[in-house]
Design a protein around this nucleic acid. Structure first.
Length: 283
DNA sequence: ATCCCCACCTGGCCGC
DNA sequence: TGCGGCCAGGTGGGGA
């Protein structure tokens, strides 16, 4: 499900309900997520108050009282949903519900069919956690710009599609937004990243465009509440709308949206994952 | 160091 | 209706 805009959407939805609320009870399915929950998860979390909710890349960060933080990644199919007080009454855990947080008047359910998600707990700054620390800059932060990107791409030989999925270069993008950003930038996903940088290390114009298109897409997608494929929805169960603006993702064999182009979108496999692009527009 | 590939899971869809 | 095969928004860890 979730890339940065979807996680941001979930974060905003949860925030409205859980800030300053105390965790009264915890339900666990007992099934392992990608990594098993720590044994003392319940003990550490029960009775704690949620002070704030943050996001780093595709991770949700819950800051609790008592200097405890929960780090949560949704994997491919994880979702959080807030149950209204009516729904919360007599709610029986459904299939793939793995963690349920009970508050005074409502419940928050973490559901994850594929169990690729994971939840960690830490008593240190989550930003220092070993999974968070190596992450590259947030796309909407100042530390993501054409110069940092040029530095990461300098003399490197990998395809730009793969590099943009690499969370240590730039964090938060996934398969959809990378494909869409490359289309908007007219860059072929197979292009080697060193070709976007001059030999003196400065960014070529195409790299500056790519950087700007990434910002543009992330901003638009957040404004539209993310993309709803399959069953993604925000914490209140509402769908996102960005999928209606997809130009290449999932459109194999369909015609390119560009007016003056007669080509069809094709799908190739790069590092084991589907890449969608227009062979005519993206050079 | 750098990069690729596999594994981890369930479920939906398509063709036979 | 059933079954096999393929596909899916991610990424840690191991190996080349």
């Amino acid at each position: 499900m979730p890339e940065l805009p979807e996680v941001e959407t979930v974060k905003k939805g949860l925030e409205d309900f859980i800030i300053n609320q105390t965790i009264k009870k915890i339900y666990l399915s007992g099934l392992p997520l990608r990594f098993p929950l720590p044994n003392n998860f319940k003990t550490l979390v029960l009775g704690k108050e949620i002070l704030s909710v943050g996001r780093r890349a595709k991770y949700l960060l819950f800051y609790l009282s008592g200097n405890i933080s929960i780090i949560s990644h949704l994997g491919m199919s994880g979702s959080y949903r807030v149950l209204s007080s009516t729904e919360s009454q007599d709610y029986i855990p459904e299939k793939h519900d793995h963690v349920i947080f009970e508050f005074k008047d409502f419940k928050v359910v973490y559901n994850d069919p594929r169990r690729f998600g994971y939840i960690f707990i830490t008593d240190k700054d989550p930003q220092d956690h070993k999974l968070i620390k190596p992450l590259g800059p947030e796309p909407m932060s100042n530390s993501f710009n054409e110069n940092t990107l040029a530095e990461a791409f300098y003399r490197k030989d990998r395809p730009v599609k793969n590099a943009l999925l690499d969370q240590s270069i730039l964090s938060g993008l996934g398969n959809i937004y990378v494909c869409e950003a490359l289309f908007r930038s007219n860059i072929n996903p197979k292009k080697k990243i060193k070709q976007l940088v001059y030999s003196d290390g400065s960014p070529k114009n195409s790299l500056i465009i790519l950087k700007n298109k990434i910002n543009e897409i992330i901003e638009e997608a957040i404004a539209l509440g993310g993309s709803s494929l399959k069953d993604f929805s925000n914490a209140e169960g509402k769908m996102g709308y960005f999928q209606n603006t997809f130009t290449v993702y999932g459109r194999e064999g369909e015609s390119c949206i560009s007016e003056e182009c007669n080509a069809n979108i094709i799908r190739i496999i790069q590092s084991g994952r589907s890449t969608f692009y227009c062979p005519n527009c993206q050079k």
